[in-house]
Design a protein around this nucleic acid. Structure first.
Lengths: 175, 175
DNA sequence: CGCTTTGGTCAGCATCATTGACACATCTGG
DNA sequence: CCAGATGTGTCAATGATGCTGACCAAAGCG
């Protein structure tokens, strides 16, 4: 990321960079409506199925994202307590969406993987959200997408940023 | 929008517009981490004060955004039920954060306004989020902000889009 | 061998949402 | 003017998601 060290106090775009009140009000509105509708599709599927909610989806997502993830890593990513995760993870295991296998080197760990059933549900939720995001991306155009990514990443705190970068780089085998 | 010093003259549109799996996974991660950290600051203030949560903040925000809004309009914006709103709004009125006054033309309506106390709390939460958003905007730059806005708006469904556009254009007041 | 780490579990509580049913005041149209 | 529609408030019950504190068991490690 091209941070800081560029001594360019160029006042170009100053109006945009000086965050006036109305600009932040707009950002608040955008994030509220946008995030709500982004999650709405998957939420509706889950509500239809019953017994599961958004928290279960998040677990399915991140386990699918990092197969073999440990409980501790998942806790760090989600930023919730062990007890809260337990109430979501245990049913997912009991109902055959996720498997737990002891770690090879550290047998205290429970490595989490999606079962076929779990992967199927995750994919269904994924496809539903893909429609929403694809439409937004297509309407906005590639340059806007790049800007969207920059701003969303900028909203994260240092910890979330580190978590995100690990996930984003995981595909390319680049830690 | 088509500014931006791209050092990589890839076949730009096509790769970005065809929403590959990994691109959506990234979008999911971005929205999860970004939205969570965006709300985290205000949530922390509210948790400190006790007695109020994110739902109360949303009410304060939208009442401040549209002074004199009716309960029905607020329900439409928030997309929750009357009962859910009641449990949040009633305490805000009882504790002197919001006033209800009968509508001039339709006395069934309860027009909502922030009190001085309510405006002060809303401003405190606002300033906290301003820091987060300002940092993200500054790091990303004006072009990225424009893209962010386009994509977030694109994520909304038709109803949310109409609500958002009304709020965005609602600088003009009606007495 | 103790100490730490990793994970699981119990009991209790708070917040934010839901549905269904009902009550009341007020506006509006025939 | 009355009947019905509308705007708002409130009852009870339920569910999903989070929290804290406490405690336990298995496994790794110095």
């Amino acid at each position: 990321m091209p941070d800081g060290n560029e001594p360019k106090p160029l006042p170009a775009g100053r109006n945009l960079l000086f965050l006036r009140e109305e600009e932040l009000r707009l950002a608040q509105d955008l994030l509220f409506f946008g995030y709500r509708d982004f999650t709405a599709g998957a939420d509706a599927i889950l509500a239809e199925l019953g017994e599961m909610g958004r928290a279960h989806h998040r677990v399915l997502h991140f386990v699918g994202r990092r197969p073999g993830i440990t409980v501790g890593e998942l806790l760090a990513i989600l930023g919730i307590t062990k007890q809260s995760l337990g109430r979501v993870l245990s049913p997912l295991v009991a109902r055959g969406y996720i498997t737990q296998t002891p770690g090879r080197t550290d047998r205290r760990q429970r490595l989490l993987h999606l079962t076929e059933k779990g992967a199927a549900l995750e994919r269904r939720l994924f496809e539903r959200q893909r429609e929403t995001v694809m439409r937004a991306y297509r309407e906005a155009g590639p340059a806007a997408v790049e800007g969207f990514r920059k701003v969303m990443r900028g909203l994260m705190g240092p910890e979330a940023r580190a978590q995100f970068d690990r996930l984003a780089g995981a595909e390319r085998e680049r830690p």
